[in-house]
Amino acid sequence: MEETYLSDFGTILLFLIGGAVFILIGLGASKMLRPSNPNPEKLSSYECGEEAMGSSWVSFNPRFYVIALIFIIFDVELVFFFPWAVVFGQEELIRATNGTWGWFSLIEMGIFLGILLLGLAYVWVNGHLDWIKPKPVIPQSRSKIPAEMYAAVNKKYS
């Protein structure tokens, strides 16, 4: 479609608009068609049939936050990998430099990767990647199967 004057991202804008129109039609049509009889019971938040206790916009486990921080660091490093990966194997560059280009870029990236691995090792050793494991409470029962077998299974899959 060379004759159209849309640039690459113009087409992506068209996709964006198309998606938005689809969503608007969906939401708009359902708004016109559906019944609407709200009452306070219906509008309360679901909490297993109990009345909801307070707001749920409260603090949550900081581990999620730590994971997000580590992710940011690694993802920024990952972004630097993409341009490197594209030029790494280019024949012209390798030929132009008599093959030293490959070694140069590999060693350069090895240093970068080493720093990245050091970071991974650091968070690993400090236990930021360990999630809290559930501690199963094993109920006492009069089963004919000996308790050691359960213990063995639990040990195997913990």
Partner: peptide
Amino acid sequence: MFFKEEFIPANAHKFLFVAGPSLAML
């Protein structure tokens, strides 16, 4: 899906409640 009654919970953030699924679909 079109004909089913739908409601926004009283405690919810009204705008973001609609924005969430729209963004996922978009």
